[in-house]
């Protein structure tokens, strides 16, 4: 009896949500900076925003939405005890994460190739507004990209757990929390995409 591990499903999920709330406040702070500086440098932000590739942004939005669907389906699959399907769906999510990062790599390397990166000669010579725009762009998409990498790694580990049967219909809070983290990554992108790629 003493070997029965105590599982607190509600407590585990509450803990995850509390963490996600702090993440919302973190990105909220970055969006606040965006808003304040947009008010101060409207022309420079408009000029900066039009240099971003909205087609790549749209592709990444579709990829992240799809990845969110797949991981949500994986939770359903585990609840229905369809373990193989669940592992496959998580694999699909990780593929989407990789696709997102590949597109991000092309976007960033194109910008860096044009001499646009924090502290670059080009930005130092230009207006402060342009410099602020690209600093915020790199900071926000950079922290977001880091979350994509962490989320992908986390889901990879969870997929292994699903495969060996450590996560199953009777005990799936690990997958559910991993999925919650992944949805947060999607949620943040839902706001980054219009603010940086579309409205400027």
């Amino acid at each position: 009896m003493s070997h029965m591990a105590h599982k607190d499903y509600d407590g585990a999920k509450l803990g995850m949500w509390l963490f996600l709330f702090t993440e919302l406040l973190l990105f909220g702070g970055l969006f606040l900076l965006y808003g304040v500086y947009l008010k101060r440098y409207p022309q420079e932000f408009a000029a900066g925003g039009t240099q971003l590739n909205w087609l790549m942004g749209t592709a990444n939005t579709a990829i992240l939405l799809t990845s969110s669907l797949l991981v949500a389906m994986a939770v359903t699959a585990v609840q229905r005890d369809e373990r193989r399907r669940a592992a496959g769906l998580i694999g699909g999510t990780i593929l989407c994460a990789a696709g997102f990062m590949v597109i991000k790599y092309f976007e960033w390397s194109a910008k860096i190739g044009h001499g646009i990166y924090p502290g670059s000669v080009h930005l130092k010579a230009g207006s402060p507004g342009e410099s602020v725009f690209f600093s915020l762009y790199y900071l926000t998409t950079g922290i977001h990209g880091l979350h994509v990498l962490i989320g992908g790694a986390l889901l990879g580990w969870i997929a292994l757990k699903v495969n060996v049967g450590a996560v199953h219909a009777g005990d799936f809070v690990l997958l559910e929390n991993g999925a919650l983290y992944w949805h947060l990554v999607d949620l943040i992108w839902i706001f980054i995409f219009p603010l940086y790629y579309l409205v400027l």
Binding site: D186, L187, I190, F191, P194, L195, L198, V199
Partner: peptide, 12 residues
């Protein structure tokens, strides 16, 4: 754009 983004966030 922000209204639609909020709607999408709500669905997620």
């Amino acid at each position: 754009a922000l209204t639609i983004a909020c709607l999408k966030a709500g669905l997620v």
